[in-house]
Every structure is written in structure tokens, then in C-alpha cells.
């Protein structure tokens, strides 16, 4: 299975986003996802990044990028300014988990969150073998990982429930980016969720 830009979650995210929508991508890196969404879905996009090198790369890519620290909230964005707020493979690097989820749904109608599942069977096996997991979706050594929160699909869904967030849709992928439908907390390496506020 081939995926856009080698990122299977990008295809899922793109499919959920309507043409012309306003999209905010938190931790947008060099703006690859936004550029893809602009080119293929005709969205209006903005990104938030903290790293200088990514700011430069995103501007070079012709992407609107705002330098900022997700840990400090999204003060410069107005309530409900976006149709979608994307946090792709970044939630596990943010310390203020509840804070950023609330901010996403303050500034956006819908949050799209993807993250690596720490309960993926290969990760579990790795820990049983006595080593921290390193995989396609967790491509870091324990000593250089930007990840500060370690959680599973079940953990995340518990938190959403506790925060009163509604899971509108969920897609789970294995390490090759193929969809997983059974035993997702065990067989899924990467999860993508669509969330809204409880109504």
C-alpha cells in the first residue's frame, strides 16, 4: 500500500477534511501536511511550530506558519476560528495533554489527533524483552525521544470520555499503514481520531 508522502495518517486526515475548510496544523513541521491539504483539498491552512528550522522550511514551502509553543496554549487564535485543528503525531510530546485538547476544540470545530499506540504488540514485546520500543511510529531511542507522555488507545479514549469529548471517528493503522479493525489496542501502531465537544 502506498501512502501520500510516506505518511499513512495524512491520507486519513485528508479524507476527513472538506475542500475550502480552514485548517490549523499544530506542530506542522515543514508544512508537508498543510501543503498536501492545500494542493489536494483546496483548504486554507495555518501551522504552528516551535522549531526555527521548521519555521524556515514551512515559509520556504509557502505555508502560513506561526511560531509558538503548544504548551502555552493558542492565545493568538480566536474561538472557533477553524473547521479542523490537526495534531499529528505530536500529542505524546505535549506535557499539558488536557490543556492542548481543550484549546484545540476552543479554536476549532473539530480536532483531528493522531498518535503512536504504546500498547501495540511489538512495543509490548519489546518491553517484555527488556527494551524500550523503537518502531516506524516510535522512531526514537529512549534518550533522544521528544515523547513525554506514553499512552494507549484505551487510555486516550478514557481521557476523552472524562473530558466530555465525543469521538466522531477512529482509524487505526498497523506499522505498514494498513487499516486495523480487530483488537485495535493490540494490533494498532498508530491511531487517528476525530473529536468534537460534547453537545
Amino acid at each position: 500500500m502506498t501512502h501520500t508522502l510516506g505518511r499513512p495518517d495524512f491520507d486519513l486526515i485528508a479524507a476527513w477534511i472538506q475542500p475550502g475548510h480552514r485548517v490549523l496544523d499544530l506542530g506542522c513541521g515543514d508544512g508537508t501536511l498543510l501543503k498536501h491539504l492545500i494542493d489536494t483539498r483546496g483548504v486554507q491552512g495555518w501551522g504552528v511550530e516551535i522549531e526555527d528550522a521548521n519555521i524556515l522550511a514551512a515559509i520556504r514551502n509557502g505555508i502560513n506558519v506561526i511560531q509558538g509553543n503548544l504548551e502555552k496554549g493558542l492565545d493568538e487564535f480566536a474561538d472557533q476560528a477553524f473547521d479542523h485543528v490537526v495534531l499529528s503525531r505530536t500529542l505524546q510530546t505535549v506535557r499539558h495533554t488536557e490543556g492542548i485538547l481543550r484549546e484545540m476544540l476552543r479554536v476549532g470545530r473539530e480536532a483531528v489527533v493522531s498518535f503512536p499506540n504504546f500498547a501495540y504488540w511489538k512495543n509490548l514485546r519489546s518491553v517484555l524483552d527488556g527494551r524500550m520500543p523503537v518502531s516506524e511510529d516510535l522512531p526514537y531511542q529512549w534518550y533522544d525521544s521528544p515523547n513525554v507522555r506514553f499512552f494507549t488507545l484505551l487510555d486516550f479514549e478514557d481521557l476523552c470520555n472524562r473530558m466530555g469529548l465525543v469521538i466522531r471517528e477512529r482509524s487505526v493503522l498497523d506499522e505498514e499503514g494498513n487499516p486495523v479493525t480487530d483488537e485495535v489496542n493490540f494490533l494498532g501502531s498508530l491511531a487517528v481520531y476525530r473529536l468534537t465537544q460534547n453537545r
Binding site: 480552514r22 486554507q44 495555518w46 526555527d52 519555521i55 514551512a58 515559509i59 505555508i63 502560513n64 506558519v65 506561526i66 511560531q67 509558538g68 492565545d75 493568538e76 487564535f77 480566536a78 476560528a81
Partner: peptide
Amino acid sequence: SKEIVAALLANGRNVSYAEID
């Protein structure tokens, strides 16, 4: 500078913001 950025974002303008160290 972020006050300017926020006002532009509120209007959906194309804007990039760099905070240079």
C-alpha cells in the same frame, strides 16, 4: 507583534510569524 498576528488570523489572512532568538 503577536497582537498583529492575532488580528490577522482573526480575519483569515495569510500570515507567518517568526520569533527570532
